[in-house]
């Protein structure tokens, strides 16, 4: 390598050095079962979260099951009557 591009920039070096990583203790191998459990345990986004923040969204959440039930009832009525 011809030169170190960080050499002249002490400020950036100081900032870069601030980034520490804590290394957790983990074994070399993990079972598939453990991985599956970790996957299940990892927190995921709430799919209805964006609806809760607006009044229209909350209304939609309340109305959606009624509309759904009405639609299913209509389909059943069309099939069986």
């Amino acid at each position: 390598m011809s030169h170190d591009p960080f050499k002249k920039d002490h400020h950036l070096c100081t900032k870069m050095d601030e980034y520490h990583v804590e290394i957790p203790d983990f074994p070399m191998k993990s079972s598939r079962w453990e991985r599956f459990i970790n996957l299940l345990a990892s927190p995921a986004k709430d799919p209805v979260d964006p609806f809760i923040s607006t009044t229209g969204g909350v209304m939609l959440l309340k109305v959606a099951p009624i509309i759904g039930a009405a639609a299913i009832a209509l389909i059943q009525a069309l099939i069986f009557l």
């Binding site: 990892s42 927190p43 995921a44 986004k45 709430d46 799919p47």
Partner: peptide
């Protein structure tokens, strides 16, 4: 995540 966006972790 493209197919199932609710799998996106927090």
């Amino acid at each position: 995540r493209g197919l199932l966006p609710f799998l996106t972790p927090i």
